[in-house]
Structures are given as C-alpha cells and as structure tokens.
Design a protein around this nucleic acid. Structure first.
Lengths: 143, 143
DNA sequence: CTCCTAACTTATAATCGGTCTAAATCTATG
DNA sequence: CATAGATTTAGACCGATTATAAGTTAGGAG
C-alpha cells in the first residue's frame, strides 16, 4: 500500500517475471503505475507518461495497459460505465465506488469472507472475483 | 425467474408504483424487459422494441433505461468494459460473467454471505453491492 | 558493420456506445 | 381551443477505445 519506490532494474525485473518484454515505454508506464498505487484510467496514464522527460503515444498506453492486465501485472476494474480503470495493487481487495464522483477506495480483502457461491460451470476457469460497493455521499455541500 | 407474462395494466401499475409516468414507450420497453428477464444492453432493448408493432427512438430507449434504473425498477450492471447491461430481476443476486462471450448468468444471493466488509464512509449511503465472478470457458471448441 | 526480421511504437482514422440539442408531439387543464 | 409541462424524436455530437498502416528499434546472421 505504502508508495514504495522502484528502481529501473526492479521495474524491468517485474516485467520479465510476468513475461513482458521491458521496452522503454513499458518500463515508463509501469514506473508511473507502481510509484503511485492508485486507480488510473488510460487517459490518466497517458497524461502521467507524457511530460518533459518522456513521450508515449496513446495507442501504446492502451496496448500496454491491456498487455499488463493480460499478464496479470495489474488488474482491470470495470466499475465506471464510461471507462476502464487499472489498479496496480494485486493484493486481493475490493472497492468502494462513489457513483457521483467516480472515486474508488480500496477495501482490504483480508477480513472479507464470501461464502455460499456456487461452483463454476464445468470447464470454466476463474478469472477473478470483483466486489464493488456502490455508494453516494449524502449531498455534503448541497445548499 | 420464470418468465411470467404481465398484462398491460400490470405493467402500468408497476411503473406507477415506482413513480414513473407510464407513457406508451415506457410501457413497451418495460413489457419487453419483464416478459423475458434476461440481461440487456440498450441496443438489445432498442432492437426488441422496434418491430412491426412498435417504434421507439434510440434516445428514448437510453433515457428510459436510465430512468428505470434511477427509480429502481431495474438494475444497472457495469460488468462489460464496452457497454452497460440492464437487469429486470430485482431479487438480490450476483453474476457469473464469461469474459470471452460476454454472457451473464445469475447467481442466487440467498446462499451467498459476505462478511467482514468495513462500514461505509461517514455520510455515505449504499447504492448496492455488486459481486461479479469473471470466468473463462476452457477453450471448448479450440482445435 | 550491415542486412533482415520480428517486435514494437506511432499518428491518425475509424468505430461505437452513449449523450445532447432543438424541434415536434402529446396530455392534462383552464 | 389555447397553453404549459412532460415526453419523444432525429440527428449531431462526444469521448473512450480500437484498427490501420507506416515507421522505428533491437538482435542475430552473415
């Protein structure tokens, strides 16, 4: 959870461990994701990696996030009706989602127990379990 | 679960009970949804209500589904990265989601127990809890 | 080195679900 | 019938994502 800093080599090792060829752009995107540990849309990532130091195209950002998710380096969150979020935190956890602001908050999965789920259909392989608690702040600043 | 048929008047009563003015288009959309009880995208509904008998515009379909969800006549499912699904089944339940085909399957919530969830942030009001089990059929027809 | 190939990145066009807009229609009421 | 408010509509528009096709890069063979 705490924003650990990763060295260039550590990032490269992470990618390799997940079967990802560590190109400059992929390392840069991974660095941004893992140096912050939040919830990012592709547009967010695109903004993060395009600055004075680095330039990465939009197509590469989308491709790379998809690749990372496929290789299980990060997790895809389908929670907002308009866009996908990506979560570099691979420790099992769930989410609060504020339906007004779109803000996501982690829920530690350690304490959460889900029992009584039926078996998967025959031949099916589990990809993941998403638990999303949708909530709304009781108009805090309404007047 | 079993596809009960609703009379025109029953549909109108349902809408009124949820504070929805029962216009012709809304009744038609509700009839299609409740006569089948599945999981529908807006495009699905648009196709269902546009036939020899009836014509409803795309804008009205989107507006009406949004209204129905807001009034809790149906439930919005955010589970597919590309589009929203609507579920006329308001009995609490969860979903299997086949990440390849996009097919949704109901999971009866009666047996499912979720414990250990933290309290909502102060002032927050729960909108709903979504449990989605993402799975993949082990390539049944690959060759 | 230089060539070659495969992997990768890029700019840009295209797609697609969904929303917006402004006009038309409907409905209830006086 | 006139009016106002709610609703519907066609079509323009938007924003997230994907597709396309060309350009770049890295590494091995000669």
């Amino acid at each position: 959870m705490e924003p650990k800093t990763y060295t260039h080599d550590e990032i490269i090792a992470m990618l390799r461990e997940h079967g990802i060829n560590p190109t400059a752009q992929r390392v840069e995107i991974a660095r941004e994701l893992f140096s912050r540990k939040g919830h990012y849309s592709a547009e967010d990532v695109f903004a993060l990696v395009n600055n004075d130091q680095t330039q990465v195209s939009k197509a590469t950002v989308y491709n790379t996030l998809g690749l990372f998710a496929e290789k299980r380096l990060i997790r895809q969150l389908i929670v907002d009706p308009t866009k996908v979020f990506y979560d570099p935190n691979m420790v099992p956890h769930h989410h609060f989602y504020d339906v007004v602001t779109g803000k996501l908050t982690d829920i530690d999965a350690n304490d959460v127990r889900i029992t009584g789920l039926p078996a998967l259909p025959p031949g099916a392989q589990m990809e993941g379990v998403d638990v999303i608690i949708r909530m709304r702040q009781a108009n805090p600043t309404a007047g």
